[in-house]
């Protein structure tokens, strides 16, 4: 039976850990060996909305495994612009490729693609719903920095209301043991109640705070997010909160040495460039881990994990 990766909710803890282990094996491989793993295989990247980072990360992952990439980077460049349905696009592209990574502004598209296509589908983001490869690369980054995910103290900062990345990460962290999350956001961008309620019956804890300085003193990880202008129905509200949390190098002076700052990128003003040179900056390594995790996922979905 073919495999897909559509939602982090489809994965149990065991499967998440298995993907983290597989990514570690991929990372340990010499580049020359990696480049011979997927000759003749084609990844189609169907990006119906722009996303430079995720698309390039998928494409880099495939190219470095020796495969090839076809696709488009916005729906204006696809036959959707001529009125073709999403379903027809998938049915057509599956004839051209061995695996598809799809991003679409509408929720549920990746699941629909997986139902239609006979080849594996990777969800590269479906509207405000899921972005599972981001969650897996975040977990991989945490485990690389700390050797574990269990018991970490993680401050989630910024737009906790609309951030798909944060929602997915929270849900995944609930599966681990004793993760303590501090939620740092303005009143109007608090984490949805259904997520905090989901912690009931787990060993995870949530604590709310409006102070970034407070979170820096007692966390292993500070996960910053961009305030997403495009999500605000009222731009006046956006203006009120857009620069509410800005992390600067001087704020990290008293922080514990182990503290790592992560960000799904792109960043705007929420992390000052002077943080980049500190030992705490983890976000570019996080981006690098995205390629590794996506390589692991592509290999798994193409049933090539035993080749490494």
């Amino acid at each position: 039976m073919k495999k897909d990766l559509i939602s982090i909710d489809d994965l149990g803890l065991e499967q998440i850990l298995d993907y983290l282990d597989l990514a570690a094996r991929v990372e340990a491989l010499p580049n020359a060996e990696k480049a011979g793993l997927l000759p003749g295989k084609i990844l189609a990247t169907l990006f119906f909305e722009p996303s430079t980072r995720t698309r390039l990360s998928f494409e880099s992952a495939m190219c470095r495994l020796g495969g090839r990439v076809i696709g488009f980077s916005e729906s204006a460049n696809s036959s959707t612009a001529k009125g073709e349905s999403f379903s027809d696009t998938i049915r057509t592209v599956e004839q051209y490729a061995d695996v598809i990574a799809v991003r679409h502004p509408k929720e549920g598209t990746a699941r629909l693609a997986a139902e239609i296509a006979g080849i594996p589908i990777l969800n590269a983001g479906d509207g405000a719903n899921q972005h599972p490869t981001q969650t897996l690369l975040d977990l991989y980054t945490l485990r690389k920095f700390f050797g574990k995910v269990d018991g970490l103290k993680i401050a989630l900062v910024g737009d906790l209301k609309y951030s798909r990345t944060i929602h997915s990460l929270c849900r995944a962290l609930l599966a681990f043991d004793g993760v303590a999350m501090t939620l740092v956001s303005p009143e109007s961008l608090r984490l949805p109640g259904y997520l905090t309620k989901a912690a009931a019956g787990t060993t995870a804890t949530f604590r709310e705070s409006e102070s970034l300085a407070d979170a820096l003193r007692d966390s292993d990880v500070v996960y910053m997010t961009r305030i997403q202008k495009e999500r605000f129905p009222d731009l006046v509200e956006y203006e009120k909160v857009k620069d509410c949390y800005r992390l600067e190098a001087k704020m990290l002076e008293g922080a514990p040495a182990r503290l790592k700052v992560l960000h799904p990128l792109p960043r705007l003003n929420e992390i000052s460039p002077d943080v980049d040179a500190t030992q705490h900056a983890g976000y570019f390594e996080q981006a690098r881990n995205g390629v590794i995790m996506r390589q692991a996922l592509i290999l798994d979905l193409l049933d090539k994990r035993n080749d490494i």
């Binding site: 509408k106 929720e107 549920g108 598209t109 629909l112 479906d126």
Partner: peptide
Amino acid sequence: INPNCITNAEPHV
């Protein structure tokens, strides 16, 4: 009920 669900854009689904 989600107007942004793909099933509402492609009602044959």
